[in-house]
Computed example of a mutant assay.
Amino acid sequence: MLESSLEFLRCVRCGSKLELNAFKLDKEIEEGILECKKCNLEFPIIDKIPVLWDDFTAYISPRKKLGSKLYQSLENQHLKKFLKSSLSKNPHNEDRTELEERWSKIYENSRNSKFYSLIKGSIDNLPKSDLVLEHGCSIGIMTSYLADSNKMVFGVDRSFSALQIAKKSYKNNLDYFIADSLSSVFGKLQFSLILALNILELIEPMELLKHMSKQISSGYLVISEPYDFDRGTNSVRKPLDEFTLRTTLNEFDFKITAKTKKPSYLPWNLKLNPRATLNYKVDFIIGKK
């Protein structure tokens, strides 16, 4: 975590400013604690990544294998005790660690997909921004790219494995956080550019759109979506199609750009393994307030 990021972060429970206790520091804070004095909540920073979850035990519960790996890597005794305590409270849940590791590798192997070059080309035409946020940033393909031309860029994702890959590329205006995209990680901070690429089937769409709308008073919202809502028990309650999505954005005071008013079909190819590729045709929308 960049020390400079502290001024932008807020407690996800009460919105108060956080205090930093850094245990291991080089160019970034590698191990530490972010603390909310009002809520008495502690948010650990492990392997340069802050976990800004309202209940850390609830985050690590379905990731017990990840927790064990992180425990072995930690040097600071306070963090080791904090993590051990959280792991000991874990109920028996299906572990997501290997699934998140697998998908992180799939995204890494697919980073040269034509999809990203098409998105980059469209975003290059937008004004440069002081503050940029990507929801569901995964391994940081787009966040890292945006940091080359914008002042400060943040990425939020649930996958620790993905952010470990993202953090391999250091830039002094780029930072990543483990968080629920619907939580108030940044309080009432306003962004001039927000990305949400291919995540509406993972986070309740209407709730996410409403949340992102509150994060932009003047700026651009960039969304792409394959509308793959058939995810069994993980499916969202209220799926959107390409027409409902555009109508909803209009209701949130976004004006759809002329080039993205009609549904599009951008190729997004994910290399699952040497013998299998998942091929999507992705819709792409840019909304402006």
Rank of each mutant, 00 (worst) to 15 (best):
A179M: 05
L66I: 06
S213K: 12
N198L: 00
L9I: 13
F82L: 11
F191I: 13
E204M: 05
F160T: 04
R275G: 00
S117A: 05
L197I: 13
E3D: 01
S129G: 09
F191L: 07
Q77K: 15
T277R: 10
E101S: 14
R237F: 02
G136C: 07
K114Q: 12
I33K: 13
L79I: 02
E75Q: 13
S4N: 11
R111M: 10
L6K: 10
R13E: 14
S122H: 11
K105D: 10
A276G: 00
F154C: 05
M1S: 09
I123D: 00
G15Q: 09
S169N: 14
L133A: 03
K38E: 14
V132M: 03
K261P: 00
G232A: 14
L87T: 03
R246N: 02
G155L: 09
K188I: 05
D95P: 02
V185K: 00
L9K: 07
K81T: 08
R246Y: 08
S85N: 14
F160P: 11
R237D: 12
K24E: 06
L249Y: 02
R158P: 00
D157G: 08
S5T: 15
L41F: 12
K128Q: 11
S122A: 15
L70Y: 11
L202F: 11
R111Q: 14
G140A: 09
